[in-house]
Design a protein around this nucleic acid. Structure first.
Lengths: 344, 344
DNA sequence: AATAGTTTTGCAAATGTTTTCATAAATTTG
DNA sequence: CAAATTTATGAAAACATTTGCAAAACTATT
């Protein structure tokens, strides 16, 4: 604080103050073991005195890693993404990385632009959410030699290593559960699928699994509902007020299912006796709602952690190659919102 | 893609490829209007051909802004922080900034370390969450000349400009609401307050307001519950099973209140007839739960947006000074989880 | 006390840009 | 059509570091 006279302290300010050369100060930070203890001490106090803070930008242009990782998600407004980002960020922070975070709001154009910006900042690695991306995004990534991981979903043949849950399996698990309870009159509520491969894949496979069992979902029971408790509550109320009601409602995620549960309560229906409601995700709170929600658990924290580990080691150890995909198995979590249909 | 032979393209690679000098390429990006249209075109195709991506690190050491803003939050696991960060990030992204995000998990030591890391990256500005921080953090900030805003809470006399809600007012609003309904037997459930000035201030003022009205909260009705629906559900069940029950429960945030609502349902109590439950925050979904939650609305999106605006303009326009604090008024939102105590 | 061997430090070049200043090219003017 | 402007480009210095190499300062050995 005392040496506050001039502008920002740089390495030569410190060097002067410690009466050594700038190179020695550089070594103080990068190879302290090469310094004589006495010099080290002198520099130490000079750093303190001048309030010097290292300049990573200047290091980065020497080909030294920037220590940043770009994380690109659709939005933080979905609790589940916040959770996975939090786990990822903790994991890589422990290895000294800081994350650059940006959201594209399901706009593929913006995703490309953000990726470019990340690259301008010379991130050491990139995380994208989901498997599907614009071809331009992949090509840009191809032309760089930084590691990239597709987080959240898993597919054996993904274009870059993917770490997450297999949506096919997720969709099949929940559909089969509902079928196994004996339901035949089934409704579905899924989010809009533009720019959202996750929801899309899930819906396809749910429908497919039902069809394979001889169950067709009529048009009027195929709901498309934006990610919002109030919207899904509304839509569920509308659905449940029809004279011909489904005996089960499969929701594309737990937020929609939560709203549907509230909608059922507001319609005077008892869950699961009058209607079964199931979700996908196992968000925080899904186990505590009344009735507790039957869902498929997507291990968000684990996915974030594994992705962080994998990316950090791919960065630190580039010879080892880009890393492998990893499947974080989803699990059917049976709770109290699902049951057999009422006998007719 | 064609010119993929050598390593990363830099500005001189592009210059060679376009048969101009590096300076001209630099101008192409920074002052394109100075270039002859023909040259511009030549460079344009050279950039494409070489796959050149600008190096912000190299620009930054010229004192040019890094285009990054450091955002430091306790955790993303609380939906409300995710929401405020999302709004902030959208706002500053529109002005060309990218955010560096890190969470300290309520550990003040880590907050200081993260801030230093942000400064090493030469962020153009910093956002901290809440008003209270280690003195070392403030001193470090003082020694830099980058703008900083304290986001989430507001206080007229905050050490740096603060943008958010006034906790005193928040606490008073909810306490007065419960009192005005006629409750005298009141319990409180607050999160642990270590490293968390928000919860602390709220609790103090709630207790203070109650006391001023002659209501004392007995020790056994002062619950400290971690931020989790399941924990709060448990604790609420325990509270409600006592023979001497409170007629109202004030929760430090909507997550706790949501759990308490589930706990009441699980205890066979009807809300608000048997017991009033209120929260703080107005999180997503609080209006849709059954019964809908009475709470104090903290305008998260607005806070994020205003902070983004304020910080971006403080960065772009440094002469204008560090900016002013801004109070985003909290509002009592009366819904169906609160009512007068049952007549005795 | 001189020599050889180590350890510690400094010099200078390099990194990828931007920018000031000077020069060359193009345009206008008389 | 030459001179005077104006416009477009290039050369070189600057930015804050790191690093290979060489010099200097120590230690150990005789």
């Amino acid at each position: 604080m005392s040496d506050n006279k001039s502008k920002k302290a740089d390495i030569v300010t410190v060097a002067k103050s410690a009466r050594v050369s700038p190179s020695t100060v550089s070594r103080y930070f990068n190879h302290p073991e090469l310094l004589k203890p006495a010099t080290r001490k002198r520099i130490d106090s000079a750093v303190r005195r001048t309030g010097y803070i290292r300049n990573r930008a200047a290091q980065t242009i020497h080909g030294i890693r920037s220590g940043t990782i770009g994380v690109l998600i659709p939005t933080l407004d979905h609790a589940i993404f916040a959770e996975v980002v939090q786990a990822f960020s903790e994991t890589v922070a422990a290895q000294g990385f800081t994350i650059l975070l940006a959201s594209h709001g399901y706009d593929l154009q913006r995703e490309y632009a953000i990726l470019r910006k990340f690259l301008e900042h010379r991130v050491d690695g990139v995380v994208l959410t989901g498997l599907d991306h614009d071809e331009a995004v992949f090509q840009l990534l191809d032309s760089q030699e930084i590691p990239c991981i597709l987080m959240w979903n898993y597919a054996a043949n993904s274009r870059y290593p993917s770490i997450g849950a297999d949506n096919e399996q997720v969709g099949r698990l929940i559909a089969e559960h509902v079928l196994s309870l004996g339901h035949r009159k089934i409704a579905c509520m899924f989010p809009p699928t533009t720019g959202n491969d996750r929801a899309n894949a899930r819906r396809e496979i749910v429908l497919h699994t039902l069809k394979a069992a001889g169950v067709d979902v009529p048009e009027k029971w195929m709901l498309t509902t934006v990610y919002s408790i109030s919207e899904s509550k509304q839509d569920a109320k509308r659905l449940f007020s029809q004279t011909d009601r489904p005996t089960a409602l499969i929701c594309g995620n737990d937020i929609l299912a939560t709203g549907a549960l509230y909608g059922a309560a507001a319609s005077g229906l008892s869950v699961p006796d009058d209607v079964t409601v199931v979700g996908i995700g196992d968000f925080k709170g899904s186990s505590d709602i009344e009735p507790s929600l039957t869902t498929v658990r997507l291990p968000a924290r684990r996915i974030g952690f594994e992705t962080g580990q994998a990316l950090a080691s791919a960065i630190i150890n580039p010879e080892a190659g880009p890393g492998k995909s990893l499947h974080c198995t989803p699990e059917l979590t049976c709770r109290h919102s699902s049951g057999p249909p009422r006998k007719t």
